Computed example of a mutant assay.
Amino acid sequence: MSRLTGAVPASGSGTFGYARGTGAVLGRAGSVQRFRVAVEQGSGEDVTAFTEAVESALGDPRSWPATGRLRLQRVDGGASANFTVYLATARTAGRMCLQGGVDIRVGGKPYTSCRVSGKVIINLDRWRLSVDHLVAIGLPLAQYRTYVVNHEVGHQLGRGHQPCPGRGRPAPVMQQQTLFLDGCRPNAWPYPDRSAA
């Protein structure tokens, strides 16, 4: 499945429900960055399911903690954290990103996701629909979701955008794959060659 069917709410309440409790520490060594997870009320999305997807992306051996210099841990919505991962409707995402100095509009409409100081903001349209050029090649929606989490968290961790290194090669996770592949193959991981071993 490359995208979900059905209407996607363009706007929600502008308020968020937070995941409760504390998650496992993701990674084996390094300093710990703590994050919260939140879903906009009125988005039609479940905070538990979104939290599981975020933790699955960040806890994989191919994600950011693979270097051994960083660990990540989800904390309760009421706890202090280094950053929060938000799932927001397009209108709310556009407003939150613009308030942080990032314009996510394409063709006049909020389109991409973004990271602004302490906030990783995932656009509900992309979470449910992916993007046309990735749907056209049959990229599973779950893979796109993993990519967008790792990409935007990468910005929070100080990584900038990267270009395609060559036709047919895996795209760096920090390439703007939501907008283009430039001949690269889709890739959801910062360290795609790592494994559980």
Rank of each mutant, 00 (worst) to 15 (best):
G94Y: 03
A53W: 00
G17E: 14
F83T: 10
R169Q: 15
V135D: 02
R3G: 00
L139E: 09
V173K: 04
A81Y: 10
T48E: 15
I121K: 01
W64M: 07
R34Q: 08
Q162F: 13
I122V: 15
Q41F: 03
L134W: 01
V75D: 11
R3E: 10
R20D: 15
A19K: 14
E55N: 11
N82G: 15
A57C: 11
P61F: 05
V102R: 10
D125K: 05
A7M: 06
A88N: 07
A171K: 00
V120I: 15
G59N: 06
L181Y: 10
V120P: 03
G158R: 11
Y86S: 06
R34M: 00
E55C: 06
G154Y: 07
Y111F: 15
V32W: 04
Q156K: 02
V173A: 08
P192T: 08
V106P: 00
G158A: 14
A171E: 02
V131H: 01
Q177T: 04
D76M: 09
V153K: 02
W64A: 09
L4P: 01
N123F: 07
R115Y: 15
D125R: 04
M174W: 09
L157R: 08
V148D: 04
P163R: 02
P172A: 14
G101Y: 13
D46P: 01
I121G: 01
Q143E: 12
R28K: 11
L157M: 12
C164G: 05
G108H: 07
F83C: 12
L70G: 06
L26F: 09
H161I: 11
G166H: 03
G166F: 04
P190L: 08
Q175M: 15
H161Q: 10
H155G: 08
N82A: 15
W189T: 05
A142Y: 04
D103G: 05
Q73V: 05
G77D: 13
V135I: 08
L141E: 03
D103F: 13
C164M: 03
R167W: 00
G30S: 12
A10H: 06
T89R: 05
R115E: 15
R62S: 09
G154S: 12
S2E: 04
P65I: 07
C184Q: 07
D125F: 03
Q176V: 13
R169D: 01
T67P: 04
P65R: 03
T51A: 14
T92D: 09
I121P: 02
A38K: 02
G108T: 11
D132C: 00
R128P: 02
V106S: 13
A197V: 13
R3S: 08
S56P: 00
A136T: 05
E40I: 07
P110A: 10
T51M: 06
V47A: 13
